Simulated assay, not measured.
Amino acid sequence: MVTALDGIDARFERATFTAVIGPSGSGKSTLLHCAAGLDRADEGEVIIDGTPLTGLSERALTRLRRRRVGFVFQAFNLVAALTAAQNVVLPMRLAGRKPQAGEVAAMLAEVGLADRAGHRPGQLSGGQQQRVAIARALVTRPAVLFADEPTGALDARSGAEVLRLLRSAVDRHGQTIVMVTHDPVAAAYADRVLFLADGRVVDDLTGPVGAEKIAVHTARLEESAR
């Protein structure tokens, strides 16, 4: 039996940006999936916006995710046949909510894509597609946004644009973000960095943490994991 997560106790405060970093196989993505209700933990409790996930039916869990949780993944996961605007409005439609006039256009403008609303994913660059994915995740104003390697498929410039958007969502709108990354530069955009190794939190740094310090910590973890 493999223990993917081992006694993790973590709280993510409102309007904060937390990065989770660690060696491959340390449990980063498993932590995100359990925290988001995509996977069920064998024991322990996960609470989102005051609602315990333990005991919820799959239907109730799906409703909670649609209304209170946003997701951004390395793969943009846009629907190829839909325009950028249609992709952004999709989670609202699934949640049975009708967007207010101008709401989707305003969200696309916020991510710098006001002039791309009618474009389909195949007509957009990778960075633009990820910005559409961020707009889609934020349009429902979720209690928490989970991002799994959101810059992993992007070049450095596009990745920086995406990270600035996430940082802005926290600073301007009080969004709560939990981001899994392997990149110390990406993690440096966060207010807090959790370091994982062997399914456990082995360090927890808060406040401005430079990429160099994060890289040193990460290198030590990787060395000890060999």
Score class of each variant (00 low, 15 high):
residue 3 T to R: 11
residue 3 T to V: 15
residue 6 D to S: 14
residue 8 I to N: 11
residue 12 F to A: 13
residue 17 F to P: 07
residue 19 A to R: 05
residue 20 V to Q: 01
residue 23 P to T: 14
residue 28 K to G: 08
residue 28 K to N: 07
residue 30 T to V: 14
residue 31 L to C: 12
residue 34 C to L: 05
residue 36 A to N: 03
residue 39 D to F: 11
residue 39 D to C: 11
residue 40 R to I: 12
residue 41 A to M: 13
residue 48 I to P: 02
residue 50 G to Q: 00
residue 50 G to K: 06
residue 51 T to V: 10
residue 51 T to L: 08
residue 54 T to S: 15
residue 57 S to R: 03
residue 60 A to G: 12
residue 60 A to D: 11
residue 62 T to V: 05
residue 66 R to M: 14
residue 68 R to P: 02
residue 68 R to F: 06
residue 69 V to A: 08
residue 72 V to N: 02
residue 73 F to V: 11
residue 75 A to E: 01
residue 85 A to P: 06
residue 86 Q to D: 11
residue 90 L to I: 00
residue 92 M to R: 13
residue 92 M to N: 06
residue 94 L to V: 09
residue 95 A to E: 10
residue 95 A to L: 02
residue 96 G to V: 10
residue 97 R to T: 15
residue 98 K to I: 08
residue 100 Q to T: 14
residue 104 V to C: 07
residue 106 A to V: 06
residue 111 V to R: 07
residue 116 R to V: 00
residue 117 A to D: 09
residue 117 A to K: 01
residue 120 R to L: 00
residue 120 R to G: 08
residue 122 G to H: 14
residue 123 Q to Y: 07
residue 127 G to D: 02
residue 131 R to H: 06
residue 132 V to P: 01
residue 134 I to P: 04
residue 135 A to E: 07
residue 139 V to H: 03
residue 141 R to N: 12
residue 143 A to T: 03
residue 146 F to D: 13
residue 147 A to C: 06
residue 148 D to C: 05
residue 153 A to I: 03
residue 153 A to Y: 11
residue 153 A to N: 15
residue 154 L to Y: 08
residue 154 L to F: 09
residue 155 D to L: 00
residue 155 D to A: 04
residue 156 A to P: 02
residue 161 E to I: 01
residue 162 V to N: 11
residue 164 R to V: 06
residue 167 R to C: 01
residue 171 D to S: 14
residue 173 H to C: 07
residue 177 I to W: 07
residue 178 V to R: 08
residue 186 A to V: 10
residue 187 A to S: 03
residue 188 A to Q: 08
residue 191 D to I: 02
residue 198 D to C: 02
residue 199 G to C: 01
residue 203 D to S: 12
residue 203 D to G: 08
residue 205 L to P: 07
residue 207 G to C: 09
residue 207 G to K: 10
residue 208 P to V: 11
residue 210 G to W: 01
residue 214 I to E: 04
residue 214 I to S: 05
residue 217 H to Y: 03
residue 218 T to N: 11
residue 218 T to R: 15
residue 218 T to Y: 12
residue 219 A to W: 07
residue 219 A to S: 11
residue 222 E to G: 10
residue 223 E to I: 05
residue 224 S to A: 15
